[in-house]
Each structure stands twice: as structure tokens, then as C-alpha cells.
């Protein structure tokens, strides 16, 4: 056994204390690729999977203990699972009308978010470029943006219902108006922060406006743009649930509101878990795309 490997084992052992014994046991063998891979999975589990699971288990236990007393207003987790077992095992049922499995509700919400968010991305990046690039556009638009972005998403809903006279486009508009601000602002900051060196390079080789936009501006501002996109997707998921409670129809927000009206607290809790998980996944997806696209740029 060579010294560097032993040292590596040492480091691992101190990093993941519970795994120390296992690692020491493996050390004498030459690690095969599969063993190495297995160890990496094991390390990953030890550092990123186990701690939250332990905490989650403790929280559930705590919750179970307080809510199991008679007269408790909220059901304990065990009760939630038995109450909602049907919804958990069959998210795909569809009995017509609003009586659908959770999958369909989530899908409807996600579709609205997809449309509203897509519009916000296009408009946000375009306006961000405008504001970031032109001093006059910034002077004129920035104060307005700063005020409008503080308006809470739901405050837009009555206005958009009045304008569109329909729930669906109103919900999409609310998504749009909620997520567009961080995209605009971050894009503008990104564009404004493009080093003069990059634009000087572009000038020396005489890139035209379009080439400058695609080859310098967008890649240079990409890390900032993606920060905005990530904040935006989180906000739009926050907004859709609230908006759907008010506009009705199929959607996870309305599902929660409906459950509240029929006093199905367990259904609400299950829906909240789904909302959280989906929001988390959306955030991860955008972060993943950002990582793939801006690889190398962020460390410039």
C-alpha cells in the first residue's frame, strides 16, 4: 500500500466519522473501479443524505408526539399517511371535474408556471439588456422597476382578472409579473459589469451589434442572468400556489384551498409536501442548467 492512499483514507476517516471503520477495513485491498464508485456513493450518502434524513425523522417524531394528544388541532404524521393513502398510492386517477389525482393538479400548475416563466425569461432578459446597456433606459426605467417589483404578486391578480376576464391568463400574468423583476435586474447588473476589456476586444475585431450580443454580452452576463432566473423560478412557484387558491380550477393551489373548505387537513399537509418537493426540483433544474452553461465563466 502506498503512502498517498493511506493519507487519503485518513482524511476520509476524519471527515466521515461513522464510516471510519469501514474505510480502514477496505484500505489493504487495491480499490477496483466498482469499489471506488461504491465508496463515493457511500461518502455521498454519509455527508449529504444521512444528516437531513436523521433530522427529518426527529422532526416527524416530535410532531407525532405533540399532535397525538387528544384534542389536537392538527393530525400527527401517522394520521396524515392513513388519511391520504389513496392520494399517495394513486396520483394519476381522474374522475372528471376537479376530482383528480395530485399529479394532474401539479401538472396544471406547472404548465401555468412554464408559460408565465417562459415569457418572463424572454421579456426579462430583453429589458435587462436594454437597461444594462443604455444609461438613458436605466435612468428612466430603473426607478419604475424598483417600485413595481415590491408589489406583492397577489395584488396584481384583481387587476389582471379585470383585464383578461379569465382565470387562466390571469394566473399566467401573475407568474410573469412576479418572476420578471429579478431577471431584469440581475441581467442589467450582469450587462453593466461586462469588463471593458471584453468590449474592447469586440471593438478591435469589429463585431457588429448582433455578434456582440450573442458572442460577448450574453455569455459574459450569463452567471448574473442565471442568478435572476433561479430567483425567478422560485418566486413563480410561490405565486402560482397563491394565485390558484383564488382563481380555482385544476391546480395544486386550488387543491389546497378545496381541502381546507372540506376540512381535509391531512390532504393539505400532503399537498404542501408535494409543493415543497416540486419547488426544490425546479430550483435544482435551473441551477443545473446554469452550471452546465456557465462552466468556466463563473470563475473568470
Amino acid at each position: 500500500m502506498s503512502a498517498p492512499v493511506l493519507k487519503l483514507d485518513d482524511a476520509r476517516a476524519t471527515k466521515a466519522a461513522p464510516a471510519a471503520e469501514v474505510v480502514a477495513f477496505r484500505a489493504p485491498k487495491a480499490p477496483s473501479p466498482i469499489a471506488k464508485r461504491a465508496r463515493r456513493v457511500f461518502d455521498w450518502a454519509a455527508t449529504t443524505l444521512i444528516p437531513p434524513l436523521v433530522v427529518l425523522a426527529l422532526l416527524l417524531l416530535f410532531w407525532e408526539l405533540i399532535c397525538s394528544r387528544p384534542g389536537s388541532a392538527l393530525p400527527p404524521p401517522s394520521q396524515v399517511v392513513t388519511d391520504t393513502w389513496e392520494l399517495i398510492v394513486d396520483p394519476f386517477y381522474d374522475r372528471g371535474g376537479l376530482d383528480k389525482g395530485l399529479f394532474w393538479h401539479l401538472l396544471a400548475s406547472l404548465q401555468r408556471v412554464a408559460v408565465g416563466y417562459a415569457i418572463a425569461v424572454v421579456v426579462g432578459v430583453a429589458l435587462g439588456v436594454l437597461v444594462g446597456q443604455s444609461t438613458w433606459a436605466m435612468r428612466g426605467l430603473d426607478p419604475i422597476f424598483q417600485i413595481l417589483r415590491t408589489v406583492p404578486p397577489l395584488a396584481w391578480l384583481p387587476l389582471s382578472l379585470a383585464a383578461f376576464r379569465d382565470g387562466q391568463p390571469s394566473a399566467i400574468f401573475v407568474i410573469f409579473i412576479t418572476s420578471v423583476w429579478p431577471i431584469i435586474i440581475n441581467t442589467a447588473v450582469g450587462i453593466r459589469n461586462i469588463p471593458t476589456d471584453y468590449s474592447n476586444v469586440a471593438k478591435v475585431i469589429r463585431l457588429n451589434g448582433f455578434e456582440y450580443f450573442t458572442k460577448i454580452m450574453i455569455p459574459a452576463a450569463a452567471p448574473y442572468i442565471f442568478t435572476g432566473l433561479r430567483i425567478g423560478v422560485g418566486l413563480s412557484w410561490l405565486a402560482i400556489v397563491a394565485a390558484e387558491m383564488l382563481i380555482g380550477g385544476v391546480g395544486i393551489g386550488f387543491f389546497i384551498w378545496d381541502a381546507w373548505n372540506s376540512s381535509n387537513i391531512s390532504d393539505i399537509i400532503l399537498a404542501l409536501v408535494y409543493v415543497g418537493v416540486v419547488g426544490f426540483i425546479l430550483d435544482r433544474i435551473v441551477a443545473f442548467i446554469a452550471n452546465a452553461v456557465t462552466r468556466g465563466t463563473a470563475t473568470a
Binding site: 474592447n200 475585431i205 469589429r206 459574459a220 468556466g296
Partner: peptide, 19 residues
């Protein structure tokens, strides 16, 4: 009166495009 490739510059801090 304007920049152009007939006067290529190597800038003080390399200024390569990092992406």
C-alpha cells in the same frame, strides 16, 4: 478614428474571453 484589426492589441491583463 476607430478601432480595427489592423491595430491589434494585447491588453495589459490578457483579456481572453473566459467562456
Amino acid at each position: 478614428d476607430e478601432p480595427g484589426p489592423d491595430r491589434a492589441v494585447v491588453f495589459q491583463n490578457h483579456s481572453l474571453l473566459p467562456w
